[in-house]
Nucleic acid binder design. Sequence first.
DNA 1: CAACATTAAATGTATGTACATAAATTTGCA
DNA 2: TGCAAATTTATGTACATACATTTAATGTTG
Lengths: 151, 151
Amino acid sequence: MRIEDEIKQPIFRDEHQKGHINLVYTAGWLQLRQATAFKPYGLTLPQFNILRILRGQHPLPATVALLIDRMLDKTSNASRIVDRLEEKQLVTRTVCPANRRAVDIRITATGLDLLSRIEQDGVIDVSGLRRLSTAEVQQLNALLDKIRTEE
Amino acid sequence: MRIEDEIKQPIFRDEHQKGHINLVYTAGWLQLRQATAFKPYGLTLPQFNILRILRGQHPLPATVALLIDRMLDKTSNASRIVDRLEEKQLVTRTVCPANRRAVDIRITATGLDLLSRIEQDGVIDVSGLRRLSTAEVQQLNALLDKIRTEE
DNA sequence: CAACATTAAATGTATGTACATAAATTTGCA
DNA sequence: TGCAAATTTATGTACATACATTTAATGTTG
């Protein structure tokens, strides 16, 4: 469906405004689809993303700072997302012995199991961008990188 | 900056996964820029968007249902965003006489003034997509619409 | 070494998102 | 008419986002 119809706005100021709105709307569309897919497993999207970063580190621990560094949303509060994962016993938190200010965060066996179950069920591998060919995705990546070019 | 460097992930599973992450990341980047621009005026991005819809209706009222219909994020809670705008006296709420279930929401003179001040300051007209040519934005719009194609 | 700055994480507060449910009103139809 | 269904908004709860502040540990420097 064209963006004009999705939000019932027939006319945009210009193609750039329409592109901006389309971009934000499409990203939201993708994220809602993903969030819905993870819901049966009791995970939100940020929780899932942090679990995956932790699996990437496993068996080494990650600190909160490392999680923020790798997260898409730098301003989100990794500390509290880890709270939720800890309550569900999907991760552990221990004071880092080498630097007692830092906290070592590790994925548990339960957490690893949950991730593999999600993957076995094929939840992740269905790409939200499957309508696009590889060439089209490359085009998209180039355009997006260009948008974020600083002066 | 390339998305690989933004989130310090050197390798993606495939171009599609990279595109997905790039899309979500870039939309967040755009929204954070916008939110920062509106902050000096005491408005959040959703609040600003609702104010603009109300101005589009002015002097006719809008209902909550109409706001939801035109919002990018259909699941957000328009009622509570209107709460904030009402507290700031930028909008009024009155029971709709023709249908007492509905609520007539109107932008106030203060609200209209605020919007024109924001526009005079040139906050909105600086497009987040100014790095792209018109042809590139058209390409982008076509790709985004294709992503959201249903089976 | 003591004082001060820096770093790492947690906490506080306001707002927004996602979804379920409630309350009031209107509509439709037996 | 009367009553169930549908409509419209508001409210409740859990979680996330955005940003400021606090707490504790570590570094730095006179």
